[in-house]
Amino acid sequence: MAFKRNPQTFNASINEVTIGTGDKAVTLGGGNTFPMYTFDGEAKNKVAIGVEISDSGVDMTVPGIAEYYAGAEGIGAIAKKASEMPGADFVVLTLDGADPNGANKSVEDCVAVAKEVADAIDCPLAIQGCKNIEKDIQLFEKVAEALAGKNVLFISAREESYKSIAAAAVMAYKQKISAESAVDINLAKQLNVLISQMGIQPENYVMNVGSAAAGYGFEYVASTLDRVRGAALGQNDAMLQMPIVTPVSSEAWSVKEAVVSEEDFPEWGAREERGIEMEVSTAAAVIAGGSNAVILRHPKTVDTIARLVGALM
């Protein structure tokens, strides 16, 4: 019997959210098929890649990263290099230095850094906080104000902080936000409901439904992604149709495989290769699960994932 092609179609689609402005603005989401099922329908927009840089400077312990940014003096020059990395669609500035338990940089200093980065690049920008709820609220309010008109994505708004961040970033300064929940599908939906009940329109927020490096509880991330996309398309659940932006690098480069030295574990081989492998395998897996954008660090990972996306979408 001849093979009968039976496309799986849905009367639902993922929302489209645009970040940045002008020619290089990036639109996320928009598809109405399961991830990468381009044989069933239109993916609409390609999975986007964000290149992560930190206000604390370049990680000189990873030779490939140190080499790529060699000669870039100051955060503006680093940001420009990041935006030019082959495969990059947008730049992600992580304000690690703001952490009260770390360098505890002032909000003013962080705003200056963010402005310098925004001025140095012509692609879209995302800002990641320091993961301290109180500090991130203060930071995002001021950075959103300073970067008004740039259509920046703020990562992230959590259950404890969404009200202040949505009010400041989206309502006051027309920026975008990412709703973050930690591998909990019911909370992911609830947070989206709460944000929508503030009057925030669907084109103004994305979500991060949780991330973990491959091998570190990734099966929970995978099943969450599957169920989120299943409900968004199969049940036409408007409260789960936000594009998904998954930070990969922060997870992949902090697990044992990417951290311990070759001297301590000679049988594991070069640390850099292990880190790249963690980053590539995690990114590829979350893309297969439905992420519409991933955040990466290493030039080799960015190149690999860009080629993967280019070949499949």
């Binding site: 599908i185 019911n186 909370l187 939906k189 609830q190 409901v193 709460l194 009940q197 169920r227 409900a231 049940q235 659940d237 409260m239 789960l240």
Partner: peptide
């Protein structure tokens, strides 16, 4: 299981 649970499900 026709709709995914969230605390605000009655509002939707």
């Amino acid at each position: 299981n026709n709709a995914l649970y969230a605390d605000s499900f009655l509002d939707l």
